[in-house]
């Protein structure tokens, strides 16, 4: 008998006399804030991102290239990883910053990315109640390694289309077959005296641009 069969047999034997438990009731909230007040939801997202030490910026579409250029400059970045599908206009004003594109033909290695200062991406969606950005490796986001190895991540959120209030609202909009990365603030640890400090292995600086 294989271990697979043995384990399944043991499970069935263990449960032979077990009663059917109570059915699942989902009478928890769909959201903890009024979901139709979009401006308030976006404000909550901004507040919760900032609470976990992300730097939050707001701008309009025409202001975006200028803001991204300034964020890269402020960080002292000389190179920026560019995922496939990132709108070319976004980095149009980042003068003097080397674009390091990732593409399927010539994927960037982790070692190469370790020498890149920043990465700019979009996201799949953002969750206001938890201050969370979700990336699904789609266009403008790229492979997971891109937002992991560089020490500075700039993430642009299209607030009109990509912000939801809560987890129950977020999950149906995500495709579980895609590789998903949920990001709530920069890398952090509570491993020393259970006190939170920011900055371990992931990007230590997280800039979030809330695009109006």
């Amino acid at each position: 008998m294989t271990s697979r069969d043995a384990i399944l047999d043991r499970i069935r034997a263990a449960l032979a006399a077990a009663p059917e438990p109570e059915p699942v009731v989902r009478d928890y909230r769909v959201a903890h804030v009024p979901v139709d007040d979009h401006a308030a939801v976006v404000d909550l997202l901004a507040g919760n991102l900032a609470d976990y030490r992300a730097h939050v910026h707001r701008c309009t579409e025409p202001e975006l290239p200028g803001l991204l250029a300034r964020l890269l400059a402020d960080h002292g970045s000389r190179s920026v990883a560019v995922p496939p599908g990132l709108p070319a206009s976004w980095l149009a004003q980042a003068d003097g910053v080397e674009r390091v594109p990732d593409d399927a033909e010539a994927p960037l290695t982790a070692q190469r990315l370790d020498g890149v200062d920043s990465v700019v991406t979009g996201c799949r969606l953002a969750i206001a109640e938890t201050g969370t950005l979700v990336l699904d490796a789609g266009p403008g986001q790229g492979r997971r390694v891109l937002t992991l190895v560089p020490d500075h991540h700039v993430c642009v959120v299209d607030t009109a289309r990509q912000v939801v209030a809560s987890l129950p609202q977020a999950l149906p909009r995500l495709d579980p077959t895609r590789p998903l990365t949920w990001i709530s603030g920069p890398s952090a640890t509570s491993d020393i005296e259970l006190d939170r400090v920011e900055g371990v292995h992931g990007p230590r600086t997280l800039d979030v641009v809330l695009l109006a």
Partner: peptide, 8 residues
């Protein structure tokens, strides 16, 4: 409210 990183 949420841990910094979740991978799925």
């Amino acid at each position: 409210r949420m841990n910094p990183y979740t991978t799925m």
